[in-house]
Design a protein around this nucleic acid. Structure first.
Lengths: 344, 344
DNA sequence: GGCCATAGGGTATACGTATACGCATAATAT
DNA sequence: ATATTATGCGTATACGTATACCCTATGGCC
């Protein structure tokens, strides 16, 4: 029934010291109820004394459960290789914390959008499930998701909840947030409100925000004007370009709702360079509340998403899906943060 | 010698199809040279067709190598629970990329500084080595490092390389960087240069930066004035407070070198509120080149560390240490980024 | 007092891979 | 032609845990 304790203690060592068999040790430590309280206490004491830790590999191999989740960042290739979207990074903290709380490890990896879906597949073999945080062209993204579904991989992704999507999705109430932003701009007297951000189904989240804006406009009896919308991806450069294009157009506008803070910041630069006064000439609202939003001048009114809730919900939904519990799509409320860029 | 292919292919399935034994499959796929080219090619082909992937748990269990590194963020507890130092986050990208390149997985976890060292110990059992990214009181940190050394854990940490430290360290040339910053301020005609940041051995990196500044001052025949130094930790609030304390002092100053961008940004706010013109009245230099540094007004001159190189070097050093190869402490050059806050 | 249920825990084994060892055959040396 | 070595691969087994199954003792029940 045993050998004496060795270098790295195993369940056998504990069994030997406790005078029981190895399986009993396993049962005791995993909380099986078919082990007496006295035996369990004894085993737990010895384990603590020896600094014993269950060997994760052996355990996973046997049980076929890794107790590990993989976090996969999907991104469009950027010129600056090492840049990561600050918005998703802010979710990292809460996801990690939530995983730790549930006793799960978190594996992390970054992928360029154009890469083989194989990577995700690979990750699915090292973990019980995958959390997907992606941005970029949604249509490119789709085929990868289909592969995952096909293979029965457990995964959740952050994205647009309102549009029907593939797989389990958690996201902010983008439509509602867009509506709040629009209502606020109307409230401060603006009527010619431009939207910067791709409004097609290549970017469902942006599309939702635009939908919300339009809804707010109609509620104020304003007819949304397609001539005041410009496509932009989430980068400062893209926002700058979009705003310039807007300025070049013949349509006048007195406010901008940008689909992300980076776009808004780029737009602000373009507007300033054109000699416009913010927010007097043009009020502007961003989205995400990245740290930089509080540092621009004027400081940027924006929509704050519930990142902490997001991490919790993502992990929660994924674990439910892994355990075969029923899960529903869930939407998180977003909140408007009023700053100088809309203070008139 | 086998059974037919099953659901999730194993090396046995491949062996069966290739008409060889399982160990041969293992050898072929791991690149052992005691397998003929023909056999290997055949095995690789079959593996590809079956979408075979080596079971990480089984492999790790047998070989006692996980091919996984753990990234551990150590932080002082912050009021805002989910905030992570943006500076370290920017290292995340390059570390991940480097790991992927070397075929290593990356496990990630966050820890409050005051937590049990046990967490690190635990992580050391799920990985071949640990990368420590920490900030906060270095003295608190020390005992944890000693534990790790004691246990023979492989680890590298980001920190001050010049001061003698425990374990393997990789870091920027903080002294040199401080010297560059000081020289630049002298060059634009400033002579009363303040330093914001803890200059004690509780924060070796900040101390190094201060040392560098003093060196530059002496080179210009200026005697460093201790009355122009204020302790600060890396946060905006702390920088704000430190600058206010400086303003309250009777010593006049015409420049500030802040030990981090966050400190600098806080200080800028305090100075602006005091009616001082930047950079005319006070020039200011930060450290880290966080994204926000380019967005403040005036934009902030700062020191950019080589984050990409840092990730590479950290992983490199750790793997060397794991493989028992000799490793030396290494220092990365830092570069001054000139912006408006020192443009006179 | 015989019968069955239950608690408590032991026995055997599987998870999938990597490696020490041994054994042929072929290549080379003498 | 025999001894020697290298090449290529099979055999056996270990890594440490979790679980299906089996056994024993005890207690309750009629």
């Amino acid at each position: 029934m045993g050998r004496p304790p060795s270098v790295k203690p195993t369940s056998f060592d504990i069994a030997y010291l406790a005078g029981v068999s190895q399986p009993t040790v396993s049962r005791a430590l995993r909380g099986s109820k078919s082990v007496s309280a006295a035996t369990r206490a004894n085993i737990e004491r010895i384990a603590r004394e020896l600094n014993y830790m269950v060997d994760k590999n052996a355990s996973s191999l046997r049980s076929q459960r890794t107790h590990t989740l993989a976090l996969l960042f999907f991104e469009d290739p950027t010129p600056d290789e090492s840049m990561i979207n600050p918005f998703f990074l802010s979710m990292l903290g809460s996801i990690t914390r939530e995983c730790a709380l549930r006793g799960y490890d978190l594996l992390i990896s970054f992928q360029q959008m154009h890469n083989d879906w194989h990577v995700a597949y690979q990750d699915s073999h090292r973990s019980d499930g995958i959390i997907l945080l992606g941005y970029g062209d949604y249509q490119l993204y789709l085929s990868k998701l289909e592969h995952l579904v096909e293979m029965g991989t457990n995964f959740v992704r952050w994205g647009s909840v309102s549009s029907e999507g593939i797989g389990l999705t958690v996201g902010s109430d983008n439509v509602g947030a867009g509506e709040q932003a629009g209502a606020h701009l109307v409230e401060i007297g603006r009527r010619a409100i431009a939207f910067l951000g791709d409004a097609s189904d290549h970017a469902p989240e942006f599309q939702d925000r635009y939908t919300g804006l339009c809804r707010a406009l109609r509620a104020a009896d304003i007819v949304p004007d397609a001539a005041l919308q410009r496509d932009a991806i989430s980068s400062e450069a893209s926002g700058y370009a979009a705003a310039q294009s807007l300025l070049a157009g013949r349509k006048r506008f007195d406010a901008i709702f940008a689909a992300s803070d980076l776009i808004a910041i780029g737009a602000m630069r373009a507007l300033s360079e054109a000699g416009l006064k913010l927010p007097q000439d043009v009020a502007i609202i961003g989205f995400d509340d990245i740290p930089a939003a509080g540092l621009t001048s004027p400081t940027l009114t924006t929509v704050m998403q519930d990142m902490k809730g997001a991490g919790t919900l993502l992990v929660d939904a994924l674990l439910a899906s892994i355990d075969g519990r029923p899960v529903e799509q869930r939407m998180l409320p977003a909140r408007l943060i009023r700053r100088q860029s809309t203070a008139v």
